[in-house]
């Protein structure tokens, strides 16, 4: 049977995403700290962005017309580092240095240390504001590149998130796309038990975002939503991506305990087995 070309493409993306997830496990294991849960939930969104939708070039990382990505939920830095490495922006071997003294791979991404990072983040609620500033800068400069901001759902409890969103809507920033990693969990448990953010899509709409809700682990849905966002000319887009925290690792899925805890040696090995094939990891 003939496969539609799309399916082969999706399979390639899934393979890439699995490799990134394997790196997230290895990195947080080796570092002995970090945030695997929210890194695994955002992996497919980052893969779709960096490997398909975004106009970027590892040969010219500072090309002025490149699309910009700001990881507002900065604690998912391991996912971003791994995706950037697979995309050719840094050597994959460097991933093993995450969080070590002197490493370019800080616990939360540092633009001053790693030029592929568009904006330093870590304290929640600030990435989206910087993305708004970048979109305004592009408009002033007459450039038409896209600016993507990736938010966490716990981050949507923070006031500055809404201040920045309000500004993006007010200025009708049609190059701005907000992707919400709606994994349902924050550090201490479910967002809706701690401080409910629903109805979140309606909130984005009320702030003047054209808003779509998708499955954040379904590449065709992610790519469609991103393509549509690029075609807009009248204002910003919000993509509410329903995801699973810890996605791909059976014992991490849906568990807030894995928000900020690295796997042990045996847990890392079980996780890697879940993610395609068993592998022994070195002692830490």
């Amino acid at each position: 049977m003939m496969e539609p070309p799309r399916t082969a493409d999706v399979a390639a993306l899934e393979t890439t995403a699995r490799e990134i997830r394997r790196d997230i496990i290895r990195m947080t294991y080796l570092a002995g700290s970090g945030h695997p849960g929210g890194s695994l939930s955002v992996t497919d969104l980052l893969t779709a962005l960096l490997f398909r939708e975004m106009r970027i070039d590892p040969e010219r990382p500072t090309w002025p017309d490149r699309d910009r990505l700001v990881l507002s939920k900065g604690h998912a830095a391991p996912a971003l580092y791994a995706a950037l490495a697979h995309r050719g922006f840094l050597p994959r071997a460097e991933l093993a240095t995450l969080r070590r003294l002197g490493s370019r791979l800080q616990g939360h991404a540092d633009r001053g240390k790693l030029p592929a990072i568009e904006a330093s983040t870590g304290c929640l609620g600030q990435g989206i504001g910087m993305a708004v500033g970048m979109a305004l800068d592009a408009r002033l400069a007459g450039r038409s590149h896209m600016v993507y901001a990736v938010l966490g759902d716990g981050e949507c409890q923070a006031g500055p998130t809404w201040e920045a969103l309000m500004a993006g809507g007010h200025y009708r920033l049609d190059r701005l796309v907000v992707l919400l990693d709606r994994n349902g969990l924050e550090t201490d448990g479910p967002t809706e038990a701690i401080m409910g953010i629903e109805p979140i899509a309606d909130k984005f709409r009320a702030f003047r975002y054209r808003t779509v809700e998708i499955d954040g682990h379904d590449f065709p849905q992610i790519l469609d939503a991103l393509a549509e966002a690029r075609s807009r000319t009248d204002g910003p887009t919000a993509i509410v991506a329903r995801t699973v925290k810890g996605k791909g690792v059976s014992f991490m899925e849906g568990k807030s305990a894995w928000h900020g805890k690295p796997p042990s040696k045996s847990e890392a090995e079980r996780a890697l087995a879940d993610l395609g094939s068993p592998e022994e990891v070195p002692a830490r």
Binding site: G32, S33, R99, H108, D110, T121
Partner: peptide
């Protein structure tokens, strides 16, 4: 704080 880095 250690690993979280300068932001934290």
């Amino acid at each position: 704080v250690g690993g979280d880095g300068g932001t934290h």
